[in-house]
Amino acid sequence: MQTCPECQSSLSTPLVCLDCHALLPQTPGQTPSPFDALGVELGWRVEGKALKKQLLKLSRAVHPDFFATADEATRNRAEDASALLNSAFETLKDDFKRADWLVKVLGGPSDSEERQMPRAFLMQVMEWNEVLDDARSAAQGSAEWNAVAELESELATEREARFSAIAKQLDPLPAKGAGDLAPVRQELNAVRYIDRTQAEVKQLKLQATLGPKS
């Protein structure tokens, strides 16, 4: 655990000391990880409420308004720390972004490096898209439209299953370079396809509520 260079209290984040309120200098090019920045334990599991609490507590401590009359370097530090806390929160609260970040940091493959998906899965994605295509040219209340409702619940179930599989592989977190992370990347790629299809479903339903195209 690091200590504050000003008051020697132990630090829960490298950004600011919560005891003496000193904004701490950062080494250029060495951005604290989202977990370090928010002072939460590195791992797959994060507790949403605790995360939000940390964000609010730390954001208050580094808020640029409190440093409005300070020198320029300090004001910049406050701005940078605020931005970093926000982006760290965005990364950690979202299951996809958090898993993506963990896979990268643990030395796993990127989405383009692990691009092959099982043929059966891609066929399934084709079928999902065909369901949507059929509904686009059919009247509401028709069988084609009912199929979209089924598709929606199928996608939700599938997405959940993918994240359970990811959780199994990332919790407990494998040591850096130890576990094979390609399967996790594959699950994440699958989630991408699922998300894209879900977005299409959403758009289709939105268009339906706006009425028929003239």
Partner: peptide, 13 residues
């Protein structure tokens, strides 16, 4: 043949 682009979720048969 069926292939996909994980970056954007495009799929092609």
């Amino acid at each position: 043949g069926v292939v996909g682009a994980p970056e954007c979720g495009d799929v092609m048969k």
